[in-house]
């Protein structure tokens, strides 16, 4: 465990609470992609199966896994019931079947081992790397976002971005290297690059988030 990893997980946790706070404070889920939230739930459910047999290996990991699964399920529940009126299926239309299919293909091609758990784990890693696309696509369609939504996306992007120095740290200092997670994590972070640029040049200067 190193500082980058802790900061990354904290950033992930903060992103989930910013999202819940955004819905509570605006009484709406406008601008949030339900598809991305569903993909994230799929990611956590296929990656954290080992919670059943490694619960005591690390209470930190096990509790974070539970929090991620439960909070994402709760977010989806809120979006489909309490804040359903703000759901706009007309703009949340990114073809998630291609993302799930692509991740499934990569999971079969590049698992560490051909066991159910390792293939599902690999699937979840590849799926997470593209799970934000429906959300970014929706941002593209609306051309703008509430400031609190951009903070949510920044924290979410920063989580896996911080895992990259964590992987470098572990590679150089512990000789531990996880190629699947690293490649997918770099792809995931690159997908945020234009968002990060706009966030840095606009939102951090107090302007509204608008696409050029």
């Amino acid at each position: 465990m190193n500082l980058f990893r802790i900061l990354g997980d904290l950033s992930h946790l903060v992103s989930i609470f910013i999202l819940l706070q955004k819905m509570r404070s605006t009484r709406s889920c406008a601008g949030i992609s339900l598809r991305t939230q569903i993909l994230y739930l799929m990611v956590y459910c296929t990656r954290y199966l080992d919670i059943f047999w490694t619960f005591n290996a690390s209470l930190y990991n096990s509790s974070m896994k539970l929090v991620f699964i439960l909070s994402t399920a709760y977010t989806i529940y809120l979006m489909r019931t309490v804040y359903k009126t703000a759901l706009d299926p007309q703009i949340d239309t990114f073809a998630t079947y291609y993302l799930v299919g692509g991740a499934g293909l990569l999971a079969v091609l590049f698992p560490y081992k051909y066991t159910v758990y390792e293939v599902l784990w690999s699937f979840s890693i590849w799926l997470e790397s593209v799970a934000i696309l429906p959300q970014l696509f929706m941002l593209q369609r609306t051309g703008e976002a509430e400031t609190i939504t951009t903070h949510y996306l920044f924290a979410l992007g920063a989580y896996r971005a911080l895992y990259i120095p964590n992987w470098l740290y572990r590679w150089f200092l512990e000789g531990h290297f996880d190629p699947i997670a690293t490649v997918a994590g770099i792809i995931q972070t690159l997908l945020y690059s234009d968002f990060f640029y706009i966030y840095y040049t606009k939102v951090l200067k107090g302007k509204k988030f608008e696409l050029p």
Partner: peptide, 10 residues
Amino acid sequence: YEEVLVKDEL
């Protein structure tokens, strides 16, 4: 190689 199978990250 075996070591990578230890999933100690989220």
